[in-house]
């Protein structure tokens, strides 16, 4: 299956996995979920919007990454997925 993975499970990083989908699904597992769940989802949605992607499945395993790290890992995962697509 087509997937793009980026990032690590080190502290302050996030590992993001994306796969093509016919609707938008975002799953977040975070060490700071109680405090930043909504913010993480927002960063993911904003990044997808900027990349003009509406339908995709995003899985984010977060180890306390800052917003820009989550954004970068998502962008990398998307570009890796698209590269496979050729």
């Amino acid at each position: 299956m087509l997937t793009g993975i980026a990032g690590t499970l080190e502290s302050n990083d996030a590992m993001i996995t994306v796969t093509p989908a016919d609707k938008l699904t975002i799953e977040v597992k975070s060490v700071v979920d109680a405090f930043y769940h909504d913010q993480i989802v927002k960063v993911i949605k904003d990044t997808l919007f900027d990349s003009k992607i509406a339908n995709i499945s995003v899985m984010c395993q977060d180890k306390g990454a800052l917003d820009y790290t989550i954004r970068a890992r998502l962008l990398t995962a998307i570009s890796r997925m698209e590269e496979q697509n050729g």
Partner: peptide, 14 residues
């Protein structure tokens, strides 16, 4: 290399 490039770019923007 791709991940680092994108991360550094995002860091610089922040």
């Amino acid at each position: 290399k791709d991940a680092a490039r994108i991360l550094v770019k995002a860091y610089l923007e922040s």
